[in-house]
């Protein structure tokens, strides 16, 4: 998850999945360092696999979904910018009254992150 793949905003969103990843990793460490029931080849192997497989699976899915969403967001922003360029005035109406209690969301497609905009119109 290098910064050049995801911008700061996306990384912040992805942090939600870092927590369970961290918990799993924590237990991998605990079980490796403090084995309450001793080591034994097969059970220990299964024990670690049961932690590492979900860890890897979750990491992969998070990475690809983050990438897919970030890419789509860039497309949306580009499209919106094109629209906003065509009619700069119209853009400001769409934010609507509901965003008034959000901090600084001046005009669509200028400063704000794609997150806020896409959710505004669709979630």
């Amino acid at each position: 998850m290098a910064p050049d793949v995801f911008d700061r905003e996306t990384l912040l969103d992805l942090s939600v999945n870092v927590i369970p990843l961290f918990i799993i990793l924590f237990f991998v460490g605990v079980f490796a360092v403090l084995p309450q029931f001793g080591y034994s080849l097969v059970p220990t192997l299964i024990q670690m696999a049961l932690l590492i497989v979900p860890f890897v699976g979750l990491a992969i899915l998070t990475y690809y979904s983050g990438k897919a969403i970030a890419t789509s967001e860039a497309e949306l922003e580009a499209r919106e910018r094109a629209v906003a360029g065509a009619s700069a005035v119209e853009g400001s109406e769409e934010t609507g009254e509901l965003s008034e209690d959000e901090d600084a969301q001046p005009i669509e497609g200028t400063e704000t992150d794609g997150d806020e905009e896409s959710t505004a119109s669709n979630e």
Partner: peptide, 24 residues
Amino acid sequence: SGRKLFGFKFVVYSTLAIGVLSFG
């Protein structure tokens, strides 16, 4: 609630996380 869903993408990513972890 008169507001957008707070942290829309948190909900999306955590949904996906549940999807993967539920098999473990």
